[in-house]
Design a protein around this nucleic acid. Structure first.
Lengths: 162, 162
DNA sequence: TGAACTTTGGTACTAAAGTACGAGTGCAAG
DNA sequence: CTTGCACTCGTACTTTAGTACCAAAGTTCA
């Protein structure tokens, strides 16, 4: 479709074709007149026509030839990542305004340690831990340690949350 | 290179070409003899030659022409999960051998609900929840709910762990 | 059908968590 | 210097969590 339109729909091609035909006719007539009596005339005549139309056919074919479309499918690996995996934690952490001690306690809380265990690990008394934990709950806006752990994991605050 | 070899290197093509030429010569001679005295003879003669060599040129061109290949690259997205991100949870979950009820309770536990709240949500008594929770701890090999939440998050067992 | 498991629920008790309030110490900024 | 904050610790109390043991009803499967 496109190729036919390319050849016959383009006015320049028609003009070129006409010119070639005219030139050919002139050449043929001249040859015909020159070798009128000669025996070779028809052979040369036919030969020229043959060459010309062979070239014409070649040209038409190249114009008509539709390009073969080769489809190459490239597999692109897309990794599924959860939105905001590591980036958020710093921001959210600052919003909570936790003190360093509270953050330490929270880390141990999220690891499943009891208040007594946390106290032992930090060389503090149980009551101190309870105070820190209570303050943590207020700052984190939660009611118990389980919610605190859930929230810490959700906000990706803790470093070892993998 | 290949195309030339295709045409002239193949004996069958040469034979076909020779046959076509012979037939053409016969047709032409026959026409020449039949319309020898007629004035139209040369016109028909030329016309036939033109048609034949146009077709020949077309055929040669199609044989010689390197196929125009238009390459279309299509990106196919292959979704992958990073190793150990989501895939493991099914395996780990089965290893725990939790019952459906226990899993339901665990889901609510990891969301920070107290036993009383879980009981209310599941329309069960507090003692039933305590039983399920105790069995959970045994199966999960933990000592309290905080450790259970930590382990559930670590093993990526819960669906809403994002 | 019987055994094993699940689900539900209860009582009694201990342990841990959590709240409320107070208070002392040290440190840094206004 | 004093004010505020972080950190520490204590007591008293309530609430929740967790354990132990038991038991009934339902389900599943060989």
């Amino acid at each position: 479709m496109i190729s036919i339109k390319k050849i016959f729909g383009n006015p320049r091609h028609i003009i070129l074709y006409g010119l070639f035909m005219a030139i050919l006719v002139f050449i043929l007539k001249w040859l015909q007149w020159k070798y009128l009596i000669t025996d070779n005339s028809s052979d040369i005549y036919i030969g020229l026509i043959a060459v010309f139309f062979t070239l014409l056919g070649t040209w038409i074919a190249t114009q008509l030839a539709k390009p073969k479309i080769q489809t190459v499918i490239v597999e692109k690996e897309v990794y599924l990542t959860r939105p905001g995996e590591v980036a958020i934690n710093e921001t959210e952490l600052k919003n909570l305004n936790l003190t360093t001690r509270e953050y330490e306690v929270l880390q141990l809380l999220t690891q499943g340690y009891t208040n007594a265990e946390v106290a032992e690990k930090l060389f503090l008394s149980l009551s101190t831990i309870k105070t820190h934990v209570s303050n943590l709950f207020v700052k984190m806006d939660v009611k118990n340690r389980t919610q605190a752990v859930e929230k810490a994991n959700r906000l990706r605050i803790m470093p070892q949350a993998n």
